[in-house]
């Protein structure tokens, strides 16, 4: 067991991938000399050199497209996009190229690219840096969308993502980089299944990524009130682990979904729809959601705090569902 931070875990995973496979390289804005906007790649330029740790111009479309091309050409690129907000500049590359080429070429070309990006708010960085767009990407067939919410997942998801012959997007909530945990290293995890992070009998809390910690904290508070909450960490937003979602709802018959994205047309809406479609007769209470307020995430600290899901908000939502 090793105590390490989420940031260290991501960096460790990149290092090991680069050490074990010469086709792997990292590129993105400030990943080299600056050591990464969130210091994830600090020290990697010195270790692997500028050929494999490549600083790119401020052109998400350009370098993401280059990564897709490199993947088609046989390399295993890790593309880092500073935040998912900026990834929209590369949306055409991700959606129209990465997600489609295998299908449009009749299976002749795979695109084994991994695109990492930071997501989420809570750091007073304003609306242009603080949104959670992973739910949008989960809409797109042809890519896999991962949301590591623990240090072990941060360290363990990269290797299977690089092994996947199709594009994989990894959303790292920027608030998690400083989280530390005692983990098995090297971490070995799958990128197919959701995970029950806490077992409970009264209500299921379904969440992922940056909201996992808040949700577990809310479950602690609920336990003090005599409410036993189960916490399901989705881990994979596409394809959704529907069996795990239905299984937890079958156990507790009540469900609150916690998602830092806006609720309209969100991944939380999709989860609700699946539960209604396939788990309707399990339900012993209406479903509920805790999402970000439907505003561009504010800069001011108190407004930002009010806009994002909070532990108190999750606890209150659970009480309302349980009628307490």
């Amino acid at each position: 067991m090793t105590v390490m931070s989420y940031r260290d875990a991501v960096r460790g995973a990149i290092r090991e991938a680069m050490q074990s496979d010469p086709r792997v390289f990292l590129m993105g804005e400030d990943v080299g000399h600056y050591g990464g906007c969130y210091a994830v790649s600090k020290g990697l330029l010195e270790e692997f050199g500028p050929e494999r740790i490549r600083d790119t111009p401020l052109s998400e479309s350009g370098f993401t497209g280059a990564g897709i091309g490199a993947a088609m050409g046989g390399l295993r690129p890790i593309v880092e996009i500073m935040t998912c907000n900026f990834s929209l500049l590369a949306l055409d590359q991700i959606m129209n190229n990465a997600a489609t080429i295998r299908h449009m070429s009749g299976g002749q070309f795979n695109v084994p690219v991994v695109i990492r990006m930071a997501t989420g708010g809570g750091r007073q960085l304003g609306a242009q840096h603080s949104h959670s767009l992973e739910g949008w990407y989960a809409h797109i067939p042809g890519i896999r969308v991962l949301a590591p919410g623990t240090v072990a997942d941060a360290g363990g998801m990269l290797a299977p993502a690089l092994d996947d012959p199709d594009p994989v997007l990894i959303f790292e909530n920027a608030l998690l980089y400083n989280d530390t945990a005692d983990v098995d290293w090297p971490a070995s995890v799958d990128i197919d299944h959701a995970a029950v992070r806490r077992e409970g009998t009264d209500i299921s809390l379904i969440t992922y990524g940056g909201s996992l910690g808040k949700t577990l904290a809310a479950a602690d508070q609920l336990a003090a009130e005599g409410i036993s909450a189960e916490v399901l960490d989705l881990r994979v937003l596409r394809p959704l682990d529907e069996d795990a979602i239905l299984a937890t709802v079958a156990r507790t018959r009540r469900c609150v979904i916690v998602d830092e994205g806006w609720q309209s047309g969100s991944i939380s809406a999709e989860i609700m729809a699946r539960i209604i479609e396939k788990g309707f007769w399990y339900l012993d209470a209406p479903l509920a959601r805790v999402c970000s307020k439907e505003v561009p995430i504010p800069y001011a600290h108190h407004l930002e705090e009010a806009a994002l899901p909070s532990i108190t908000g999750i606890v209150e939502a659970c009480r309302a569902v349980l009628g307490r």
Partner: peptide
Amino acid sequence: GAEAAIQPPTVTTLAEGSRATPAA
């Protein structure tokens, strides 16, 4: 399991204005 649960139950009459959950 999930397969069985999607078959709907026989619903006995419910007084007007009152509510019962699917599980109930």
